[in-house]
Amino acid sequence: MAVRVVVGQPEAHCFEMVAYIEWAANQPLLAGAGGTLLAASVSYIITKAAGRREEMRQLRGALETAIKELGSRDQSALDRALTTIDRMADALRPAVRQAVQPLGTTANSLTVGTAERTVVLNIADRDAVMADVPPEITSESDYIVRITELDMETGNCRIAIIGEDDARIAGKIVDPAVAVPNNPYVTAMAACVPLRVRAKALIRDGAIERLYLSDAINT
């Protein structure tokens, strides 16, 4: 089936290009519940590849609702449809890897979805997608850390989480402030004092493997 795609001109200093699939827009099915199913499916595929379990759970509920709105009320048919989407998510993992490759190189985030529901991927999600066995990415939380090493150009660091064991773990500061002289991260490291930060944790086998720091919190 031929599909015509029209792409709007990107804005200056922005990597976003809004694509309109003309055939899909003219189909009553896809303009209604079918469109909701398509958007929820794409978001589910991406969050599964990134190991974002809480969002997967929420999107699975949206998928069930969209399938029911298409007329499928039988539980066995619903289960088969969801199983098909799960298999599709596994098959499309290479495509998701291609989509997230620019993160950390030419872009800091990637937004996928519709006006009603969006999924924002960052560098932590890219690392999770690229991993052979996807780890879990937690939501943002507060941590008190001690920074022992820091590269102000790349944001790579070594940190210890206060209250955990003394083992140091890898960190990545995605806050642009890390490149500014005398920023809170380098100041805390130089003074050998703990720092409260907002961060997402990459968890593998039940342990925090890497911390992605997005903000330093004044206390």
Rank of each mutant, 00 (worst) to 15 (best):
P134M: 09
Y185F: 14
I144Y: 14
C157W: 07
T118V: 01
D175R: 08
T138M: 08
T138Y: 14
V180N: 14
T118Y: 06
A179F: 03
R126D: 00
T114S: 15
G155N: 07
D125I: 00
A190V: 01
I123N: 06
R117A: 05
I173M: 09
A167Y: 10
I159N: 08
I169M: 05
E164D: 13
G171M: 05
D175W: 05
T148G: 12
N182H: 12
L150V: 01
L121Y: 13
A131K: 08
E136W: 02
I123G: 05
R126S: 02
M130I: 00
I137Q: 06
V145N: 12
V174E: 12
A177V: 02
V178I: 06
V129T: 02
M152F: 02
P181N: 11
A190I: 01
P134E: 10
S139R: 15
I144R: 15
A160V: 09
I137A: 06
P134K: 07
V119P: 03
L150G: 02
I159R: 11
D132Y: 13
S139Y: 12
R126E: 02
E136F: 06
V120I: 06
V186A: 11
D165C: 02
G155L: 04
V174W: 03
A170N: 09
E116S: 12
M130V: 01
E116F: 04
A177F: 04
I169S: 08
P181V: 01
A188Y: 07
G113H: 07
P176L: 04
E140S: 13
D142W: 08
D142H: 10
I173Q: 10
V129K: 08
N122Y: 08
I169Q: 10
N182M: 05
C157T: 13
R126W: 04
P181A: 09
R158H: 11
I144S: 12
P134S: 13
V133M: 13
E116L: 04
